[in-house]
Structures are given as C-alpha cells and as structure tokens.
C-alpha cells in the first residue's frame, strides 16, 4: 500500500491533567489521508483523550499536533471553530438533542457555516435543508425526518448523529466508542456506515473501540494505547492473532 501524505500528525504529544494524572505520554505518529484507523486499549488508557486532542476538545500539555500541515495548538475563536467544522465527531451516548426533531438535529451539524443570528432563527438555506434529507438518506433514515430524536432506537440515533456529522462536510470523522451501547446487529450497521463513508467519500475515520474483533474487521490500521502510551501500531495486514493481547495487559501486569 502506498503511503499518502499525513492529514494528522502527532509530534511528542503529552497530556497531564491538573490533578497530575498522565493522560498521554510522548505520542508521535502520523495518520494518512483516507485511512480507517482503529484505536484500541483498556478504559482509561487515553483513547478518548487522544481523539479529543485532534479537535481541541481537550488541550495538550506539550508537543504538537498538525491537521493538514497546520499546527492547531494556537487556534482560538473562529479559527478553532473552522478546525472543528472539518472534523466530525460521533459519541458513545449519541449526544442528540432528544426533544428536537431529527431534522433539527441533522441541521445542527451545519450551524458553523452560518452566522449565529441565522442559526437562532433557523434560517437554513433550501440547499442545506435538502442536504439534510440527503444525509439522512445516506444512513437510510430519510423517513424519520420529522420524528423526535428520543423516539428512535439506539442504532437509529447513532445514524442520525452520523448524518449530523455529514452536514459538516468533514474531512475527518472521530468516533469515540460509537458502538459501545449498541447490540451486535446495530453495531454492524453503524460500523458499515462509517466504512462506507470512508471508502466512498475518502473521509479519514478514527474510531476508538473496545472490541478487537471489530477492529480487525474494519480497520486499515490498528494502534494500541496503554496507560497513555502508544504500544502498538500496525497496518491490518501485519496484525497477528495474539498481538493485541499485549495491549490489554493491565499496567501492573506490564511492569511485573
């Protein structure tokens, strides 16, 4: 497989929380454009932190992260919002606005293309309203346009969240444990949708997963985190059956 230019690059990134807990420790690696990267590791290994440093939902303590060859650390205000606009994010808890319609939820993914006052009055262009229908159609939920979000099942809610992300025209999608609260069948639908967006639109997808089996099924490349450190990094072709056991060793076991 030929190596394309990196879209995201970590250079010696450290993250220490204010209470002294080490979140990330000396992380350096590149993510190439169009890759489907899966991050595996135990709870508390730093997977969520790693993901959230890319769209600056979490700040880093030292080191540098570049997105499309630009250092993102100094972004403020509008520049930060524009960075976030091109990076979609999907959450374990779906994070939809439950009392609002599916349409409003999906359109909320587009707000960063409008001035604040227009978003308040809901003045979305006709083209964007059509885009919302189109985004929903891509996750096979167009008929739910006017349904209230909390009337949908978990798997449907996660697909609405994906449609919301599509409204951003993202170059990158970050998915933080997107299937952790879903059953096996809906898990497959959601993961297939992410894979399709990755292949059809060339969106770089970074997914945090607990399940090694899922990681092996969908990833182009798997990286492993343990206690905030990058302990594993292989393209899927090189991933062997027993490899991932070492990632899941407890920190105590690793030291022993």
């Amino acid at each position: 497989m030929e190596q394309t230019a990196p879209i995201i690059s970590f250079k010696g990134v450290n993250k220490v929380y204010s209470n002294g807990t080490v979140g990330l420790k000396d992380i350096s690696f590149d993510i190439s454009r169009g890759q489907f990267l899966v991050v595996v590791g135990l709870s508390g290994a730093g997977k969520s932190t790693l993901l959230r440093t890319i769209n600056r939902m979490h700040e880093i303590t030292s080191g540098e992260i570049t997105v499309e060859d630009e250092s993102i650390s100094d972004y403020k205000g509008k520049a930060l919002r524009l960075l976030r606009r091109k990076i979609g994010m999907i959450f374990q808890g779906f994070n939809l606005i439950n009392r609002s319609s599916v349409e409003k939820n999906v359109l909320s993914g587009r707000v960063s293309y409008y001035p604040t006052w227009k978003t308040i009055f809901g003045l979305f262009s006709k083209a964007d309203k059509e885009k919302a229908v189109h985004s929903l159609a891509r996750v096979n939920l167009a008929e739910k346009l006017y349904t209230r979000a909390d009337e949908l099942s978990g798997g449907q809610q996660q697909r609405v969240a994906i449609a919301r992300t599509l409204m951003q025209d993202p170059k990158i999608i970050l998915a933080d444990e997107p299937v952790a609260s879903l059953d096996p069948l809906t898990t497959k639908t959601v993961m297939d949708t992410l894979k399709r967006l990755n292949q059809e639109d060339g969106i770089t997808v970074i997914v945090n997963l607990h399940s090694v089996a899922l990681a092996r099924e969908y990833a182009d490349r798997i990286v492993g985190l343990r206690a905030g450190q990058l302990v594993y990094d292989q393209p899927i072709g090189n991933v062997a059956e027993g490899d991932l056991d070492q990632i899941y060793q407890t920190p105590e076991g690793a030291k022993a």
Binding site: N55, M57, L80, R81, L82, L83, R84, R85, I87, G88, M89, F91, G93, F94, N95, L96, I97, N98, S100, K104, S108, G109, V111, S112, T116, T119, I120, A161, R164, Q168
Partner: peptide, 19 residues
C-alpha cells in the same frame, strides 16, 4: 452530551445554548 456535540461541530457559544 448535546453541548459537547454542538461544540465539536464548531458552533458558537450562543448557538450552543440555543440548540
């Protein structure tokens, strides 16, 4: 949760409160 989602979309503070 929804606030986090709106923030990750790149919404302004007022839009986040509104939505």
């Amino acid at each position: 949760g929804p606030l986090e989602a709106l923030e990750s979309v790149g919404a302004t503070k007022i839009t986040i409160i509104w939505y």
